[in-house]
Simulated scan of single mutants.
Amino acid sequence: MTSADPIESPLPRASARSYLLTVLGEFTYPDGAAWTTVLLKVLGGLGVEEHAARQAIARSAAAGWIESERQGRAVRWRLTNAGRAVVEEGQRRSEEFISAPVSWDGRWLILLVSLPQNERTTRKRLYGGLTWLRMGNPTPGLWLTPHAESVDELRDLITRFELTDTAICFSGRTEDVGLTDAQIVRRAWDLTELADHYRNFLEQYGGHRPAGGDDVLLRHIELRNLLQRFLRLDPQLPEQLLPNWVGREAAELFRTRRDQWSTAAHTRWNDLLNA
């Protein structure tokens, strides 16, 4: 597989497994499959060495996200139910991100939760889950998000960590006591570095035009992978809380490039799959 030099990523380099799930989610969801040889070619075009690509496939299978099918001496891979669930969640969040922002009704979803200091690993995993739910941490033990509709996901997270006996969750508007909404945002999220990443993304992808073939396929995958990684960093705050946010301009570029590159990228993928 040949391609033009890759665009320098505005974020730290993606892992082999991250690229693998992007490829499978984009081109095999919901019930398609991909030959090992095609996955190795495409991941190689993205700069992933063969041993790292094979390791990513093996680890994804061990995690229960993908399963193999053998046809003669050839092997192909498809998403399991668990893998499809991961892809579906990513797709839902991606569509929310690149769609027009929804007006905020002023309500916060608020969680009071704490873990003993000696449960460092559990606390790190919990905080990672809360961050994925776009929650910020303005004061110790308090997490909140303007995305009050995330309550079901938050309930599942707290249940999974067996914290239902100690956590307290409620929703509501702030009063004229203590921190204002603007002060909450400044304390809960440090978005300076993320804004710089977005500006780098706009500069690098704003004028890029793939040549077609392998190039458009690889650039499309890079773009989809970048979108997923930005989703893990951006709390997607409403305009009332964060006006003039550069992330909204980036979301528009993600949407534009996806619409421009998707058809050609899928055509090239099918060519490789059927070669």
Rank of each mutant, 00 (worst) to 15 (best):
Q55H: 05
A195K: 15
A63S: 03
E119C: 09
K124T: 11
P140W: 05
D234N: 11
W189G: 00
R84L: 01
I7S: 04
A34Q: 10
Q91R: 13
R186T: 12
E96R: 15
L223G: 06
V87E: 03
G172V: 05
H266W: 15
L112H: 11
A188K: 12
R93E: 03
L126D: 02
G90V: 05
A53N: 00
G136H: 08
T159L: 13
D271E: 14
D5T: 08
R186M: 07
T80K: 08
A58K: 07
Q71H: 15
F230T: 07
L115W: 13
A275S: 15
T174I: 13
R92M: 03
L194V: 08
T122L: 09
P30K: 11
S171F: 13
A63V: 00
A61W: 02
A264V: 09
H51P: 01
E175A: 07
D214I: 03
H147Y: 06
P6C: 07
G247K: 06
S103M: 11
N274R: 15
A61C: 07
G172C: 08
W189F: 15
G212F: 09
P235M: 01
G25S: 05
G207Y: 15
G32W: 06
A100Y: 13
R70P: 05
L111Q: 05
G106T: 02
L253H: 10
A52I: 02
E203Y: 03
G172T: 06
L133S: 04
R173F: 01
R187G: 10
A56R: 01
G32C: 10
R134K: 15
A33F: 14
L241M: 11
N270M: 09
S68H: 07
R120W: 07
R125M: 04
V113I: 14
T36C: 00
E193D: 15
L40P: 00
L233E: 07
R13T: 09
L126H: 05
R84P: 00
Y205D: 00
E49P: 06
G72N: 14
T256G: 06
R134V: 08
I221G: 05
A33G: 09
H208V: 14
L233T: 03
V86H: 03
E95Y: 06
S150I: 03
